[in-house]
Design a protein around this nucleic acid. Structure first.
Lengths: 336, 336
DNA sequence: TTGTTTGATGTTAGCGCTAACATGAGGCAA
DNA sequence: TTGCCTCATGTTAGCGCTAACATCAAACAA
């Protein structure tokens, strides 16, 4: 009777049709409809055609919530990033999403906004949806978050870093070494007064340590470290706070470009090569934008989308190497 | 017995604990545990404490999949964007996520990659998870996608545009008018040879139409239109294909900055004000970057995050205005 | 013929939770 | 005392699907 109320082809009038309504209309049992949806090869062609017809007539859309409960498989992965806007993490989300979507997995996205309390909250929220894996940028900020993830007994992939004691799998690069590489390069260029600008999140801090340690090891005085507020790409103004500096490593390209903008205002930017720059600037991330501005931006290139794709792979394969170092590359252009 | 196997505080050894395991341990019925989780005020303080103790001991994490099936509420919204990487849509996702997360909603994110077939596929996948609303950038590319959404009987919010016949709610701005505004401005500036560079997606195309119509209405010859491949920020090279042009409207800031880079190479970029530019350039999106480069970028400013927040609001409130024009603003700086 | 295999479909039970409706104890007005 | 309310908790049924195990007919080997 309720199916009588439904006009074929024009859409449902009431509640969404269920498997068993389709089954009734096709004159089969519901398990057969379920098979048509999930393992069509097991169903005889004529039966299948009848069922498909009934599904179309009713506008049937499978209910994966019910399916997930019955099968204990949600076909979803939780993804936790500090922030998605204006960030290179969007590349990572795109990469993993491109890899997972064709396999029928959905991405449940959450942001921590660099806030430990919020991180724990969204982590709990994610886990209560029973994702089959969690991919996160960085590592849990708290012991509680770490415990939650360990207890979940699902693949956990930490990215954008190479933590010493990962929960499970890792896809990232060595942020400390990136700092070292930049300092080495600047020292080789004859720079003397180094500075670091960026956030004080874990990964940025590791870059700072590498940068500082290498500078000190090379006999330079301790570099200055300017901790910028997030969104404080008023890093334009940062220059004013770093007089006498002749080389800057910015924790990301946006900060680098902002800083260069400050240099330009101060007349300290040349359109020539690195050697002509009164102040060398190196970024991190290799934003496309870095190649479009003048002078072009030297940077540590990191493949955000490869990190995402690799993380997705680690999510699906339980065996094999669980710690993948995707490396980085110092790309030298005109800014430093 | 199975709870005997679980060592309190060290995490579960087997399957995740369920409501009724917690209930047994606390000596109450499962509905009471459910109430402690969802409506703690209804439970007597001592009982509540006992239940909370049991939850902690067992490391209980509620199963929202089961809860969603039982209550017919998933507390999730589906979000469909063309792409998340390097795009201003990330702002929109951040905005809506910031609004929805505190309310207990999760975001299920999908990308269409500007591909109609993929869009329909991910739309079906989203709907089968029974989100309580769908927020998408733009409108469905196909009739089939549109039908799916209409039949879903949930709030649907189309964003970043103001479609004439929306499925349900809308949060965006008038892309045609944006094109008109830019053309008007360039005409007033005395520019004669206009050009438009950008993609041929629906919204970009509407900007083009507004731009062209206004140029023609002002007595100029038809502007040139250069359709760039996505990721073809080889818009650097675009300049070579637009000789004699004295004003360009780029469908987004990234293209604009790429084009300016091409102009610089050709010696056609000045550090002075708009009036000094041999070729005026106007972007769209108001990336932070636009203020950091030289000359600073004139652009149509659009608040991606406000679009996201508004869309989230439209998702939650069924009554009230369903068509919200968030407008845009022509921000004039030095590029044109 | 008889047993055995294969292919197609069905039956049953239950995933972990919640809505809706009891139940029962205590308080309190008349 | 009676009736009626309020508060705290419980019972029952079922959300829509799938795993696991039947069932049964046809095909086929010995």
């Amino acid at each position: 009777m309720s199916s009588d109320l439904t006009e074929p082809g024009t859409g449902p009038t009431g509640a969404a049709p269920t498997l068993s309504e389709v089954a009734k209309r096709a004159g089969v049992s519901s398990i057969t409809v379920s098979r048509v949806v999930r393992m069509p090869d097991l169903v005889a062609p004529e039966t299948r055609a009848r069922v498909e017809r009934a599904m179309r007539d009713l506008g049937y859309v499978p209910n994966l919530v019910a399916g997930a409960l019955a099968s204990a498989r949600t076909n979803s992965v939780g993804v936790l990033v500090p922030t998605i806007a204006n960030s290179i993490f969007a590349d990572t989300v795109q990469g993993l999403s491109d890899k997972l979507e064709p396999l029928g997995f959905s991405v449940i996205l959450a942001q921590s906004r660099y806030d430990a309390v919020r991180e724990d909250r969204v982590l709990a929220a994610l886990l209560s949806r029973r994702p089959e894996a969690i991919i996160m940028v960085g590592s849990p900020a708290t012991e509680e978050g770490s415990r939650l993830l360990r207890n979940a007994r699902i693949p956990i992939v930490e990215t954008w870093d190479l933590p010493a004691n990962p929960i499970d799998a890792v896809a990232g690069f060595d942020n400390y070494k990136a700092g070292v590489a930049v300092a080495k390069h600047l020292v080789a260029q004859g720079r003397k007064q180094l500075a670091f600008i960026g956030g004080d999140d874990p990964r940025g801090t590791r870059r700072w340590f590498g940068f500082r340690d290498e500078a000190l090891a090379s006999g330079l005085s301790e570099p200055r470290r300017l901790i910028l507020d997030r969104k404080d790409s008023g890093s334009v103004a940062a220059h004013a706070r770093l007089p006498d500096v002749d080389a800057v490593f910015a924790a990301n390209d946006a900060h680098a470009i902002g800083f260069m903008s400050g240099l330009r205002k101060a007349g300290l930017l040349r359109d020539g090569p690195a050697s002509a720059q009164p102040v060398a600037v190196i970024g991190l991330g290799d934003l496309e934008m870095g190649q479009l501005i003048s002078p072009t931006l030297s940077t540590i290139s990191v493949h955000g989308d490869a990190i995402g794709r690799t993380a997705a792979t680690l999510t699906l394969e339980r065996g094999g190497e669980r710690r993948i170092d995707l490396g980085f590359e110092l790309v030298l252009r005109d800014s430093g």
